[in-house]
């Protein structure tokens, strides 16, 4: 199957910054597939989302060897073409449920705006009501007249997902879509998203700081650190191999319901992103001289790709164990 989205060598530099926020990031996304982009604050994961949706302003330098969506070069599109694309084929859901809604207008009015922008109003009216009910909003017809303050965070996020999917996009970019929500609501919304993905052959970029949150949904995962891809591959293989010390550290730092209690968690030291050599070297417990001088390229190790000089060397145990 040919990919719906193809990204190669994506590099983004914000004005006035010494180094790119994202450098050399690439992935392919097939219709109906989900890729997770995982990393902590400053990893560049949200910048990837904004770059793909072309939401970064003109002052931000976005370059890529390839960035095509449904066969069209995303970097070559004009303003109007981009607007139409975002109103229809590419949909987005962001983290903050309240920050994404205008408090002075009803939920319904704002959803209708979206459909109008896509030229799909009133044609998709019934589809919108059906979708609202589908994502778990009771009595959607009457809830459309409510203002955002009458909705809980989870309800706003459900309405946002319905609004994002009602134009029948082929790509959904979800940046921490459930991070602000309770875990029960989070699990439920992720499950609904995954059902809709499967039904609609929707491709999804799922951005999160928590590998555990995305593991169920994404067949492929990119782990970013300091704007670089440090590990990439099938999610199950990444979890099994944990090729990169950063991935190992991320996984080990999260307490688990079946893990030990009341013992110190293996917590990675904090440290700056290195400007030369491996970006992770200042925080890496295994860093050697070569890590501080030469930058490791992403290379195949087992079933995944890892950007670490030490990955795959015999006798090397993961730096952290749970």
């Amino acid at each position: 199957m040919s990919p719906i989205l193809s990204v190669r060598g994506l590099t983004v530099r914000y004005p006035g910054t010494a180094r790119p926020a994202v450098e050399g990031v690439g992935f392919d996304l097939e219709p109906g597939a989900t890729v997770a982009v995982v990393g902590e604050s400053g990893s560049g994961k949200s910048t990837v989302a904004l770059a793909v949706s072309r939401l970064l302003g003109p002052a931000v330098a976005v370059r890529a060897e390839t960035m095509t969506f449904e066969g069209r070069d995303l970097l070559g599109l004009g303003r109007e073409e981009l607007r139409r694309l975002r109103a229809g084929r590419i949909a987005m859901v962001f983290q903050s449920p309240s920050g994404s809604w205008n408090p002075t207008r009803t939920i319904g009015a704002q959803l209708v705006d979206g459909l109008r922008a896509a030229g799909r109003w009133p044609e998709r009216r019934d589809a919108l009501v059906a979708l609202l009910s589908r994502v778990g909003i009771h009595d959607p017809e009457s809830r459309l007249n409510d203002y955002p303050h009458r909705f809980s965070g989870g309800m706003l996020q459900r309405a946002m997902i319905a609004g994002a999917l009602v134009t029948e996009p082929s790509l959904l970019i979800a940046d921490e879509p459930t991070s602000a929500l309770d875990t029960t609501v989070q699990a439920e919304i992720l499950e609904i998203l995954d059902e809709l993905r499967a039904e609609r052959d929707l491709a999804m970029i799922l951005i999160s700081h928590d590998l555990g949150v995305v593991a169920r949904l994404a067949r492929h995962t990119l782990v970013l650190y300091g704007g670089r891809t440090v590990e990439r591959g099938p999610t199950a293989e990444i979890y099994r191999h944990r090729g990169h010390p950063y991935t190992q550290g991320l996984l080990a730092a999260v307490p688990r319901l079946d893990g030990p209690r009341k013992t110190p968690l293996p917590a990675m030291a904090q440290g700056p992103v290195a400007h030369s050599g491996c970006v992770f070297a200042p925080r890496c417990p295994r860093a050697e001289d070569r890590c501080r001088t030469s930058e490791p390229a992403l290379r195949p190790v087992g079933g995944i790709e890892v950007a670490c000089h030490l990955a795959g060397e015999p006798g090397r145990e993961p730096a952290w164990r749970m």
Binding site: E188, G212, V213, A215, R216, A236
Partner: peptide, 15 residues
């Protein structure tokens, strides 16, 4: 059941 986990497939909690 809602806690994040690495079991692939739908969450045991389900929708």
């Amino acid at each position: 059941d809602s806690a994040p986990s690495f079991e692939p497939g739908p969450s045991p909690a389900g929708p």
